[in-house]
């Protein structure tokens, strides 16, 4: 009864302030509609046309989708995406999670702070610069990696990292080693800070080892963060143009071709903007489905969290 009364009072208060509230929200809302939603709607509509990106589009139904879905190169790029996705999901989540846990359990708060800063500082390096650095690291003649291999006497084992079609995708996957993704690290660290101290104390009293504490307490309690980061990682990977574009251009041949790269080439190189939009829509649907699946099947525990 009391609860209902409070609720009704809240509703009345809200409705009294609503014109002002809506007025305040309106500019942001209009800007969001204009710059975030309108382009998406235009993209959806234009993906059903033949459009070069400049001249008036002509309705063409599902032609673009049929063309994309019947293109073996698209399915090859999807295969690359799957391989890369599985690898990336594992390393980009596991490594920061373990690192966050290790830092969190350091006794010295100063040490925690220093490690956090050290791992997060690379975030300020622009992505393209990072890729250029990796490009030089991989260079078979001048690169650090092959120079080290030479140095240790394994001259015959120096690979052509980005030029060998069998190795190029692996080389792309390894960009970012040791995979302590700063953003993911911070999210996991923040998650650990929200776990009730009493949980850790109880675990200590029960004689729980660091390993079982990680698997039985920390990981389950961080499922919420894991879910969020899984979604963001998948979205990031599906939109991944820059890495393959800068390092391999999707090659050699189609060895590192990705759906987003295909979208970019179709839209901006091959004069087929609507085909690029169709690929973008397919990627969009994939993101939606994967997000729904994750939301449906990963249910984090709210228990023991502050």
């Amino acid at each position: 009864m009391m609860e209902r009364m409070l609720q009704s009072r809240k509703t009345r208060k809200l409705s009294r302030h609503s014109p002002v509230a809506y007025g305040l929200i309106a500019p942001s809302f209009i800007l969001m509609l204009t710059f975030s939603y309108f382009p998406v709607i235009v993209a959806i509509v234009y993906s059903f046309t033949t459009w070069d990106g400049f001249n008036p589009p002509q309705y063409s139904g599902l032609t673009n989708y049929q063309q994309v879905l019947s293109d073996p190169i698209f399915w090859l790029s999807m295969w690359h995406l799957l391989l890369w996705g599985l690898f990336k999901l594992f390393v980009d989540l596991a490594v920061p999670l373990v690192t966050a846990s290790l830092i969190f359990h350091l006794r010295s708060l100063r040490a925690q702070y220093v490690y956090r800063v050290l791992f997060v500082v690379p975030m300020v390096v622009p992505g393209v610069v990072l890729l250029m650095i990796w490009s030089f690291l991989y260079d078979p003649n001048l690169g650090v990696i092959n120079s080290l291999i030479h140095h240790f006497g394994f001259t015959s084992l120096t690979p052509d990292w980005l030029g060998d079609p069998n190795l190029a995708l692996v080389a792309l996957m390894l960009v970012g080693l040791p995979f302590v993704v700063p953003f993911n690290l911070l999210i996991f660290y923040a998650g650990l800070q929200h776990v009730s101290e009493s949980v850790f104390e109880a675990a200590t009293l029960d004689g729980c080892s660091a390993l079982s504490r990680f698997f039985k307490i920390e990981f389950p309690l961080l499922l919420g963060q894991t879910k969020l980061l899984m979604i963001l990682t998948v979205i990031g990977l599906l939109q991944n143009v820059m890495g393959p574009l800068v390092l391999t251009n999707g090659g050699p041949g189609y060895a590192t071709y990705m759906p987003a790269l295909m979208m970019y080439f179709d839209a901006f190189q091959n004069n087929q903007m609507s085909l690029g939009l169709a690929i973008a829509m397919i990627i969009f649907v994939m993101v939606l489905v994967l997000t729904w699946v994750q939301n449906k099947f990963i249910r984090p525990s709210e228990e023991f969290v502050n």
């Binding site: 260079d139 078979p140 052509d160 990292w161 030029g163 800068v246 390092l247 391999t248 090659g251």
Partner: peptide, 8 residues
């Protein structure tokens, strides 16, 4: 060796 790689 890396002639087929993209080369900045």
């Amino acid at each position: 060796p890396n002639v087929e790689a993209n080369d900045n």
